[in-house]
Simulated scan of single mutants.
Amino acid sequence: MMQTAAQAIREALLTGDARAKVMAARRIARDWRLGRLAPVFDIAMPEQPRWPEGLELLPPNRMPKRGKGGSLKNSIALWHSLAHIEFVAIDLALDMAGRFGGTMGPEFIGDFLAVAADEAMHFAVVERKLASMGARYGSLPVHAGLWEAAHETRHDVAARLAVVPMVLEARGLDVTPAMLERIRASGDHGGTAILQRILDDEIRHVAVGAKHFREASLMRDEPPRKLWQTLVKLHFRGALKPPFNDSARLAAGLPRDWYAAVA
């Protein structure tokens, strides 16, 4: 019998080995695109995905502060942080498709499985960058803040879309350009290319979230901007802080009058 999409996604979420998860995410996106997975969502997604054995998890407020200098130690800390963001992003996209795909439909599923494949590629290239500096993913502590935001919104697709792609991933559009300039100024051409690719892809990922959020708001017969602002105030525990990359956000379908009101 053909494997169901829900089965494949759940198995990937419960894959703890980082490289195996990368391969699983890319395989699922390809199999869905080629019609090799049955569009059946009759299996619940796990409450918590599996991550690599030995990964040291700390509360966000206990994470070591990263230095801003150009030392090897600081560079490793920066790229390790990026690796963790991209690794968790694989699970965020897979869970989005597996948890809500049954009600949101094939285009939603395909879009977020494609996002998962992109995030898997991002993690792989960042992990190789770490290896070139003599480090590896898991050599420094990480936090689970990104997944906690997903868990908070596990019962509401509109809330998940509002908080994860449209707040957390959108924040990457704000901070990555300055990071990119620092890496470029240091003469790290390989790192510059990696960050530029991630930034370009993340604009598209936020746009996917914004598109489907608008669809979810139509299903609820509520104005999208007002609904987004309400859900962010209700479910996002942090604060939206400037400066904002207004041009990248607008390209991703996030007009300034949406987020300026809650910043």
Rank of each mutant, 00 (worst) to 15 (best):
V208M: 11
P141M: 11
P49G: 09
N74C: 05
V142W: 00
S247E: 15
G190F: 02
A210C: 03
V88R: 06
G98L: 05
A117T: 09
S81V: 03
S247R: 13
P46M: 11
H205V: 08
F100A: 03
P39F: 09
F87M: 12
R237C: 01
R249V: 08
Q196H: 05
L92A: 11
T176A: 10
G69H: 09
H212D: 07
I203E: 03
L130C: 06
A135W: 03
A5Y: 03
G101W: 04
P59H: 12
Q7R: 13
K21R: 15
W147C: 07
G54N: 01
A24I: 09
A24S: 15
M104I: 01
D188L: 06
F244W: 12
L180M: 13
H151E: 15
M63R: 13
A178D: 15
L72V: 14
D17N: 15
R184N: 02
V125R: 13
D111L: 06
A193N: 06
K65R: 15
A93S: 15
H205G: 05
F123D: 06
E148N: 12
L234C: 07
A207M: 04
L254D: 02
G98Q: 04
E47M: 06
L227K: 05
V232F: 10
E152M: 11
W147S: 07
R214W: 06
P177I: 06
V125P: 00
H212W: 15
L92C: 08
L195D: 03
I43S: 01
D42P: 02
A25W: 05
W228F: 11
P59A: 13
I90P: 04
P141F: 08
R62H: 14
L254W: 02
G98W: 02
L82C: 08
M133I: 00
E222C: 04
R220L: 15
A185L: 13
A93E: 11
H84Q: 09
D174E: 08
V175D: 10
Q48Y: 08
N74Y: 05
L199Q: 13
E119L: 06
T230R: 15
L161F: 09
P60Y: 12
P255N: 08
R237V: 10
A170H: 03
V167N: 02
D31Q: 15
L195P: 02
K68T: 14
I198C: 04
E215L: 14
G69C: 11
P243F: 09
A6G: 09
L168W: 01
E169Y: 01
F87R: 07
H212V: 05
A24V: 10
G134F: 05
L57P: 00
K73W: 06
A239V: 14
L140F: 02
I109G: 00
A251T: 00
R136W: 12
G187E: 07
A114F: 05
A44W: 01
R184L: 04
P141C: 09
L195W: 05
W147V: 08
A93Q: 13
G35C: 08
G145N: 10
G67T: 11
L140G: 03
P49V: 11
I76H: 07
E202L: 03
V115W: 00
W258K: 04
Q229M: 12
R197M: 13
V232P: 08
G238K: 07
R184W: 04
H80I: 10
